[in-house]
Amino acid sequence: MVKELGRRLRLARVRHGDGSALPEYRPWQLFSRSLFFLDLTGDAGDSHVYAVDVRHLAEAKSRSQHEKAAGKSPAALYRDGVQIHRSNLPAVFPVPGGVVEVATSAFGLKRMRFTADDGSERTLRPHPRSQEGLRARFGERFPRTSAVVGAVSLVVLLAALAVSLLHGAEALTRVPVVAGYVGTFTSPIHLPGWAKAAMVAAGVLAAVERALRLRYNRLIDTLSS
């Protein structure tokens, strides 16, 4: 119920596009832009290619009036290369047979999927030259290595999460009121400064790697990083 209400609110925020053409993906946009595609058949049986263009550096609240008028939003939906909708993030775009849901985190995308009216879901396909496309191609060419990289990313984030929880529990029990009820707790893990910095850096890289594969878990990918 709550999920459906949130989806309706995001649909209500969608604005009409300006009819501009989909810009070509450029190499220097590798870290600032994500582009995904979806092939759908309309009610009349005609096929269309939909594209979702996400600009990670676009600020929803700080754009100038000129930029707003020009339709430069953090996310835009194109049909056959023509902009038809735009929205701030997270976004839900209406398409034939369902909606396209888009959401980002501090490390990249966390959701880029088509949700059909019957509840089925599928991930859109990334542009081959985008970060997500390059990561997907790597997974196709080297599936075993890709699986190992994914497993290492998960282990790194779980380790960072465990350390964070232990330190958080120690800090909490240092509060006199809390200590009076549950006693004090000392974390068994205390890392030197260089190790903390290395763990933070590894956690960020692991979170980015998971974002490239659109793997997101609210607990693991947020708290551990």
Rank of each mutant, 00 (worst) to 15 (best):
V54A: 02
R55H: 09
R55M: 12
H56A: 01
L57E: 15
A58Q: 12
A58F: 12
E59N: 15
A60I: 14
K61H: 15
S62G: 05
S62F: 15
R63C: 03
S64R: 08
S64H: 04
Q65L: 13
Q65D: 13
E67H: 04
E67P: 00
E67M: 03
K68W: 05
A69Y: 01
A69R: 11
G71W: 08
K72M: 11
K72E: 15
S73L: 04
P74W: 00
P74K: 00
P74S: 04
A75P: 11
A75H: 06
A75G: 14
A76W: 00
A76I: 05
L77H: 07
L77M: 04
Y78V: 13
R79V: 15
R79P: 07
R79A: 13
R79Y: 12
D80V: 06
G81S: 04
Q83G: 05
Q83H: 03
I84D: 01
I84T: 10
R86P: 01
R86M: 14
S87H: 04
N88Y: 05
L89N: 00
A91M: 12
A91F: 09
A91D: 09
G98W: 06
G98S: 06
V99E: 13
V99L: 07
V100A: 11
V100W: 06
V102G: 00
A103K: 03
T104K: 12
S105R: 02
S105I: 03
A106E: 15
F107I: 03
F107A: 06
F107W: 14
G108P: 02
G108H: 00
G108D: 03
L109C: 09
K110R: 15
K110W: 00
R111A: 11
R111F: 03
T115A: 14
A116I: 01
D118W: 10
G119V: 12
R122V: 07
P126R: 04
P126I: 07
H127C: 15
H127P: 08
P128S: 13
P128V: 08
Q131Y: 08
E132F: 05
G133F: 08
L134G: 05
L134R: 12
R135E: 05
A136G: 05
F138S: 04
G139T: 03
T145F: 08
T145A: 13
